[in-house]
Amino acid sequence: MRRVSTSPHFHSGASTSNIMFSVAIALAPACIWGVYVFGLRALLVLAISIATALLTEFLLGKVSKENTLWDGSALVTGMLIGMNMSPSIPLFIPFIASVFAIAVAKWTFGGLGANWANPAIAGRVFVFFSFSSAMSSFVLPRTLAGVDAVSSATPLSLVKTAISGGEVAGQTSLQILSGNGYLSSAFAQKIESLTGISAYNVDAFIGNIPGCIGEVSKLLLIIGGIYLLCRKIITWHIPVAFIGSFAILTWVFGGLPNGLGFFHGEVLANVLRGGLILGALFMATDMVTTPVTHKGMLIFGAGCGFFTFLFRSFGSLPEATSVAILIMNIITPTIDRFCISKRFGEEVKQ
């Protein structure tokens, strides 16, 4: 059969499913690390999130007679939801989050490409505000505790509680952690004695801290992000603007809640804690819900960094990154309206 169609008759080979499966590959190492440090329970949480997301997508596809399982977006959503769950979460919560993400955040707006919010973030925020206490109780990684399921606060929430208690004026967050006898691994202590980088930061970087399954290993997330950058699936604009603006704001104002004054924020410690890296590399770079121009992406990223800093330093809930991204998702159409690319021939050099 000869086919006749409009040009071009040549294609770069990029496809939606290719993009989605590449993102899934990039996320996989951090997932595996999560299962390694938090045990099989973490694997169960991931499996339930992914299976629910795929099943919801499949059933809704049946209803609307449109099979979209192959595009891989439900897989990525499911993975991200699982990665955003505490390993000790009651199992019905990732189930609800996945159903909400696929059915409400994505399908009611018309499916992939038409949703205004990143489905995974919408799912996470929905269950966070519904089941706040379950969503904010975490366990120690077994690399620190030696056994599974020893509950513990994350560094972020411990510092926040200490600061709102009001007895820590003038202390850095690292001093607060060591003052509270927070655990650190032997490996990280060795690194600290060799290089002077705080053991808490080393642990946060390699993933030896309590937290959500997929967000703890910054190292593996960054490797995944670099993979996506090299494959040109994402561009540098959003992650750099996001982390950059957050780092600058933290440096300038981040010392204020501790009573340290301006320009005394702990940049490294704050960047490595919580879901910032996961959010900046994988959730704020979701194509559908972010601006299309590079200029718009920079604004989007900077906005995410600003709101993350604001909620993390001055908010009352331990939920900053995902709400920040969600707010910027809302602003995206407006950014797209005003950030349009410059037309060829507008500046004429004679």
Binding site: H11, G13, A14, S15, T16, S17, I19, T68, W70, D71, G110, G111, L112, G113, A114, M287, V288, T289, T290, P291, V292, T293, H294, M297, D336, S341
Partner: peptide, 15 residues
Amino acid sequence: KNYRQTHCLSCGRCV
């Protein structure tokens, strides 16, 4: 390869 069409992802590659 016969690629399948999806909706616009707003990825901005065309831009």
